[in-house]
Design a protein around this nucleic acid. Sequence first.
DNA 1: AAGCATACCTACTCGTGCGTAAGGTTACGC
DNA 2: GCGTAACCTTACGCACGAGTAGGTATGCTT
Lengths: 216, 216
Amino acid sequence: MLARVSSTPSFKRLPRAVREQQMLDAAVKVFSRRGFHAASMDEIAEDAGISKPMVYAYLGTKEELFIACLHRETARMMLAIAGAAAPDLPADQRLWRGLRAFFGFVGAHRDGWAVLYRQARGSQPFAAELAAMRARLVEVVAGMLDHALRARGREVAGTELEVVAYALVGASESLADWLADHPEAEPEKTATRMMNVAWLGAAQLLDGVTWRPPVD
Amino acid sequence: MLARVSSTPSFKRLPRAVREQQMLDAAVKVFSRRGFHAASMDEIAEDAGISKPMVYAYLGTKEELFIACLHRETARMMLAIAGAAAPDLPADQRLWRGLRAFFGFVGAHRDGWAVLYRQARGSQPFAAELAAMRARLVEVVAGMLDHALRARGREVAGTELEVVAYALVGASESLADWLADHPEAEPEKTATRMMNVAWLGAAQLLDGVTWRPPVD
DNA sequence: AAGCATACCTACTCGTGCGTAAGGTTACGC
DNA sequence: GCGTAACCTTACGCACGAGTAGGTATGCTT
């Protein structure tokens, strides 16, 4: 209705791609601090140095915005991991490199990643997104285990492997949560601990050692 | 303002304690299905077969209601676990019994527990509640490990144990999530798988076998 | 049978925040 | 130097849902 008095020369006009990144940065920040529901589009817009309708014009509704955040962050993380765990390394080396990259990433994006991630686990609409990316991770880990097994001339049912992989991924996520809550903790050390829990067990499984429930 | 025409004989008047349980049942159900924010007090009240002001009168605000749900469910779970894992058993037996009880509980309360639990991880106000109860679990597990270590004449720094315990608890939580999402999966089998991942590794740690990062 | 506490209801208020309509301003091609 | 398209704004509509005011029924006690 009322035009802004053209005293402020308004801020720089920037190309869409740049603004989108600024918005995503702001969104990640605010979603992390407040949680999905407590975060307001107004605050995100303000934090991005832009007005609300721009956010709607570029990134869509609040849900779509959150999903866009998730996508960007997961893509960055997968890239970091994939870049570190070259497929031609032996299994334990791959696992180690992958874990180190993973915890390194989380450590460097404490409020960015971990909190965003925790948000997504809860609410319906995002669970699917998250499940998809976890599935990719599980697949990678399961593939690693399978590869190692074949190298030893052994074989295990697919489901079995998948569940073990799921447990490993889950343990890593939990330690990542722990890491995000302990600012003084070192990512590298956390990765080492994870190896101690995961690999010692997994290695035995790979060698055919299994635990069977007692008959009671 | 306007009185209800006294045609319906209204429903049975029940003592407070009974109504409270009905309300909590309904709340758990609705919170699970919808998530904390999407759940409405109206729906909870309706599902409990009561009107909204009663819920406020008995259980307080929405947040307080959710926390009441958390308390009841965690108390039930801790009871189930503590009852199963008698402290005089050897470590592997205790772990096995405890895990079996845990997964049994989750399997029996799929939508009750697991989803409620997932909710709580996200939002600020409940994270504390949840952290407290996880801390108790971690403490129990760490105590078990410590006990087993002393029995073998060895000793490890407290933090180290805590982190390992945290990883084990985390892996269990993740498998619980998996279980909750797979209606056809058997709790007992899941517990066995968890033992295979966790115990084989933990047992080696207890025996002093550790993994060290390569120098690259 | 009056008294009183407890159980229970309908029908509101009101803040909050998503999403949008409608219009102003700058850059860039020609 | 002028149109046009992309960029950006203020200011609002509107739904939804938490929490409450105020009144009614029921049963236990004396």
